[in-house]
């Protein structure tokens, strides 16, 4: 048999194995997460190796949502995420339009600033912001956290939106201008309606950052339990011995599910927006 035939045969066997392994390694932990969340803690202790609960229970979810306060945490996370998305869009739409269309002083330097902010380590920023918020008495308030999230997402969202705005034909905008539109009403009536997919992707990105973030939530909110986000709540309760692991697993599902649903609802938009630069190589 020639080398080519051997290699092809080998690949024919190897490829499904690799694919199966990848699927197992990524899907199994989440399957395990869901299965743990619907069983009683006694069952886990007695039979740690079993994958299918002998009796399904949803008491874990009732417990985590009410007694452990996850309903409050969900409300906090939702407020933070929605506010971050709204303000991020409000700021990055005009910013991206300016970078895409208008020639102004410092336009080239702006790119450099954004790249620097994108790559900038959060742990360095954490120190002065922690000190500042302590001095201002803003620790424990959600507003400070929202501000930080906006600053961290705006550079990326401006970049994503700019890529899209550049694909909107300039002639459409010129036509609007001739019809008497001002610059702002051109953006509002012509550019934005044409950019709905990009706006969706940008909003999803900002939402995911705000929902998943941990370090700043930990630094700013840890002392006030009623302000905890879902991420912070789970991380703080995970160390306690009194709360059964199965109840906390229900908490993980509550934390993970919204983000997974949102991601796959807008997946195509999001991955195209983020990897747009990759195709140019």
């Amino acid at each position: 048999m020639s080398r080519d035939r051997i290699e092809r045969r080998l690949l024919l066997v190897l490829k499904p194995m690799v694919i199966a392994l990848l699927f197992l390694v990524t899907a199994f932990p989440f399957f395990y997460m869901v299965m743990l969340s619907v069983r009683d803690i006694q069952e886990l202790i007695l039979e740690p190796g079993s994958l299918w609960p002998s009796a399904f229970t949803f008491d874990t979810y009732v417990d985590v949502l009410t007694r452990q306060g996850f309903l409050t945490f969900i409300r906090n996370s939702a407020i933070i995420a929605v506010a971050s998305v709204a303000v991020t869009l409000l700021i990055s739409i005009p910013g991206a339009y300016a970078v895409a269309r208008l020639r102004f002083f410092g336009r080239r330097q702006v790119h450099f600033l954004f790249l620097a902010v994108y790559l900038f380590p959060a742990i360095v920023l954490a120190i002065p912001l922690f000190v500042l918020f302590t001095m201002l008495g803003l620790r424990g308030s959600l507003i400070g956290l929202i501000l930080v999230y906006i600053a961290q997402t705006v550079p990326v969202t401006v970049y994503m939106l700019r890529n899209y705005f550049e694909t909107v034909p300039q002639s459409v905008e010129e036509a609007a201008a001739i019809d008497g539109c001002t610059r702002l009403s051109t953006i509002w009536r012509v550019v934005l309606p044409l950019s709905k997919p990009a706006l969706m992707a940008t909003g999803l990105y900002a939402f995911m950052i705000a929902w998943n973030e941990f370090l700043f939530a930990l630094l700013f909110l840890v002392e006030r339990r009623e302000s905890w986000t879902v991420s912070l709540g789970l991380s703080q309760l995970a160390g306690s011995i009194e709360i059964p692991t199965t109840v906390l697993m229900a908490g993980s599902v509550v934390l993970t599910l919204p983000i997974v649903i949102i991601f796959f609802a807008g997946e195509r938009l999001l991955t195209e927006g983020l990897t747009a630069g990759a195709e140019k190589g």
Binding site: T26, P29, S235
Partner: peptide, 18 residues
């Protein structure tokens, strides 16, 4: 889709899972 979940899921949830 399954491959993307570890990256998309919140870090607190997957760390607790591990």
């Amino acid at each position: 889709a399954s491959i993307l979940i570890p990256y998309v899921a919140p870090v607190v949830a997957v760390a607790f899972l591990w």
